[in-house]
Amino acid sequence: HFKIKFLYLHLAYDYDDQDKLFFCDEEQSLIEKVHWLIMRTDNYFVPSLFLMPSFEQELEKLFPEKETVFHHLGRYRFHPSNHIWGMITRYYQAYLAKADERIGIQVRTFEPGPNPFPHVMNQIYACVFKEKLLPQVERKKPIIDAAPSGMPKQKSVLFTSLTSGYSENVRNMYWENPTVNGDVEKK
């Protein structure tokens, strides 16, 4: 039985079918012999690990609440400095902690250009409205005349993209128009 000192795993956006074999149980026998796994990734692949039978039972013991996985990995495995962790927690307290609902939207496009593409914006709006993630806006009614019906919810939206125009378009839509149901968006 030999031990491999290190293995490079490529799980970045351009990873291929060969790289995806990492998520197959039968391929894990090689990785068991590795001292250090060096990984390049820009994807959140942890949910895929829960789908692997060889990892499922142990992961469920380690993380009975699946929502906590990223927190634990981010804090304890990636070892952000106290300064960076302080920035993360201050951001969370300021923008996310008091929200009734937290929504994350990530937009990845592989088309060059600094401005948002209309067809992508249309896809974003179609998705968030169809799935009722964000409330519809009332474009014909001035904000001053809009009265919330009942107790409005505060929703915090964490929007990530390499092009800021996508989040700016969504933010401006809620700045310039009241929501139909009175919910308040915080971005």
Rank of each mutant, 00 (worst) to 15 (best):
M52P: 05
V184R: 11
H119M: 00
N122C: 07
E65A: 12
D145F: 12
P142K: 02
E60G: 00
Y174L: 05
M151C: 12
K66E: 13
P152M: 01
L62W: 13
R90S: 12
S161P: 06
L133T: 03
V180C: 14
A146R: 12
T179L: 10
S48V: 04
A146H: 09
F2D: 13
P152L: 07
K5S: 07
N82T: 11
R108M: 09
D145T: 12
K61Q: 15
N181Q: 02
V34Q: 04
K132P: 06
E26N: 04
Y76E: 07
V46N: 02
V170A: 09
K66V: 11
V157D: 09
N181C: 11
P112R: 07
L9P: 02
G74L: 03
H1D: 08
Y95R: 09
L9I: 15
Y8K: 10
R139E: 14
I143M: 13
L62T: 07
F159P: 12
Q18G: 08
I103Y: 00
A12F: 05
L158W: 01
R102T: 15
T41A: 03
M87E: 14
N181T: 10
A99E: 05
Q106P: 02
E101H: 09
Y166S: 00
P135H: 10
K20R: 09
K20I: 00
M173W: 07
L73W: 00
V46A: 06
F23D: 02
P80K: 03
L30K: 08
D183V: 00
K61S: 08
M151S: 15
G86V: 01
Q106S: 06
P178R: 04
I84T: 05
H79P: 00
R139A: 10
H35G: 09
V107Q: 05
K33N: 04
F45W: 15
